[in-house]
């Protein structure tokens, strides 16, 4: 087997020089895109974050930390994002874990249909699915209107953090359910039987067998929903109705409305730093004490 593989790869490699050329050609376009449209834009943002606003907006070269100081003085959108992303992740978990468990263990022959029904909303336009909630939360003809008609009680949903939270959980729920489902589906039932045979109760079995096995899926799911929620722009822009802002909206307003690129850049760098620290710490925390790295986002 090893001999065949070695010969295979040697043959695949062909002549040394030609092979290196081919490899570079294969990797070149993707590398170009990564460097020109990922590394370069992020590098520019880091550089700009130390500059000052030009007179007509934009960037003027400087070396100052004012933008970061300013960031600490106005932390509100930042705090909003952190709170909403955390609440949204917990919400996705509460809604998604029983669903994933049901799909993996109880759906039986309907499993494929139910999975497809989960993929369909995820596959369709995010924008459309989000604005639909605007119709549902309409004060006159949506849920608040119906409730008012029936009970006389008045309340507002549109433009509140609740509306944004519903939008976040709704938008990202499948990203939580998919990895949870995949890990739960691989769960070996004989372990559950063994646990029961050894006299463990249902709760003890869940806590000591199911949960540890589902943990990698749980972590992957949490990260997959937390990241986009933290940087969310579209959902608060639509369901926040101009009354509730998150980090994404603050970024857009400093870049486009205030045209203060350095202030916006500092906000962007702050956001990236928080994400890197949170996600890396989370991964480290979950993987600590394990011999192999079982969980990652890729």
């Amino acid at each position: 087997m090893t001999a065949a593989t070695a010969r295979g790869s040697r043959l695949a490699a062909g002549g040394r020089g030609r092979s290196a050329l081919l490899t570079s050609l294969l990797v070149f376009p993707a590398t170009l895109w990564y460097v020109a449209l990922l590394v370069a834009p992020l590098a520019i943002v880091v550089i700009f974050s130390f500059g000052t606003r030009a007179k007509n907006g934009g960037y003027a070269p400087a070396l100052t930390l004012d933008n970061y100081a300013d960031l600490l003085n106005r932390p509100e959108p930042f705090v909003n994002s952190l709170v909403m992303a955390t609440a949204g992740t917990v919400g996705c978990l509460l809604v998604g874990l029983p669903l994933a468990y049901y799909l993996a263990t109880r759906a039986g022959s309907r499993k494929n249909v139910l999975l497809l029904l989960l993929v369909i909303p995820f596959w369709t336009s995010f924008l459309i699915r989000t604005y639909a909630w605007l119709l549902i939360f309409n004060p006159d003809t949506g849920i608040p209107g119906i409730v008012k008609l029936l009970t006389g009680a008045e309340f507002r949903v549109r433009g509140t953090p609740i509306a944004v939270l519903v939008g976040l959980v709704y938008g990202y729920l499948p990203l939580m359910v998919f990895p949870l489902y995949v890990t739960l589906e691989r769960l070996d039932r004989t372990l559950l039987e063994a646990s029961k045979d050894l006299g463990a109760g249902r709760w003890a079995t869940f806590r000591q067998i199911t949960l540890p096995i589902a943990l990698p899926g749980l972590v992957t799911g949490s990260i997959l929903v937390f990241i986009p929620m933290m940087g969310e722009y579209v959902i608060p822009a639509i369901l926040g109705y101009g009354q509730f802002y998150m980090m994404g909206n603050a970024l857009v307003s400093s870049f486009l409305e205030a045209r203060n690129w350095p202030a916006g850049s500092a906000r962007a760098v702050g956001l990236i730093a928080v994400m890197l620290v949170t996600v890396t710490f989370y991964l480290w925390f979950v993987n600590r004490g394990r011999r192999t790295r079982e969980t990652s986002v890729l």
Binding site: Y34, L38, L42, I44, M230, G231, E232, F255, A268, I272
Partner: peptide, 12 residues
Amino acid sequence: SVIVPEIVIALA
């Protein structure tokens, strides 16, 4: 590219 929010990459 996975960690950095889409809005940050868009603005950058």
